[in-house]
Amino acid sequence: MAQISNSKSNEPRGFDVGNFVNRFGTVLALIVIFVLFSVLSSFQGGRFLTSQNLINILRQVATLAIVASGLTIAVAAGEFDLSVGQVASLTGILMAGLIVRQELPWGVAAIGALGTGMLAGLITGMLVTRFKIPSLITTLGMGLIAVGVNYAYARGDSIYGRMPEEYTFIGTGTIGPIPFVVIVSAAVVAVLYVFLNYTRTGRYILATGGNPTATRLSGININKYRLIALMISGFCAAMGGSILVSYLGSAQPSGADNYAMDSLAAVFIGMTTIRRGQANILGTIVGVLILGIINNGLNLVGAPFFLQTIVKGSVLILAVSLAVRREEIRFF
């Protein structure tokens, strides 16, 4: 389990420029990256800073934002969930399979897929809380199990076929100029933000992740909140996988596997801002946007494909190393 500490107070006394930069440095980095691509793109027709492209970026990160926000809840409770990518892939395959092969209404398929994600989180949570298996290991195993179930269900095959318009609208439809998937994603993120920050359960999750011993001694059942956090993570992974299928119009067995690394990167980048040292929804969204803008911006300026991963990795290391250096995040 990652030991994440918030060793310094984040609350400024009056206006402190240094503290402001520390606290919002990653947000500033997001703005700098945005401006940088706007300038670079202006030499090539200025396509980056168009409403069409900005909407495009939001659509591209919408699904990742849901998965990463769910993961944020788990990390806020002091747990890792490395299975989100494979759970999202599994639920995507289930969603498509139940619609195309079993010919179930998409609502029923969604219940099946989302239920599977929650079940994965429930099993993980039980193993972590009852048997004291570190979530890092449990979710690593759960990810492999998800791959196995995925292959068992569809024999590893991709699933193509006509899907109901009401379902594909989630991933491809628009309301005015705004893609519906962006609205769904924003709603999910908003709900999770309110849940984590303004409900008793959310605050207990934060307390559990911040200082489990003190929280337990306060009479709070920390295992309950770790379990809830992991279930939410599984649920959001399932929602991401199901929405991804409606966006892509098909399901590939490993179609969402890379969400695990991107989500973790977004959460860790997010931990360096807003509430430094603590996983927080707004910070994660900053991380998601940074990753999305880097992908999109490099494509638009015609950078070689390999720069995308190099730049994303560098941003992650840079952001987290600065936070570690200031002792805002401590692992193990």
Binding site: R47, N53, Y247, N296
Partner: peptide, 10 residues
């Protein structure tokens, strides 16, 4: 899908 979307904008 995302790359082709980016190209179309670019």
């Amino acid at each position: 899908l995302n790359t082709v979307n980016d190209w179309l904008n670019r």
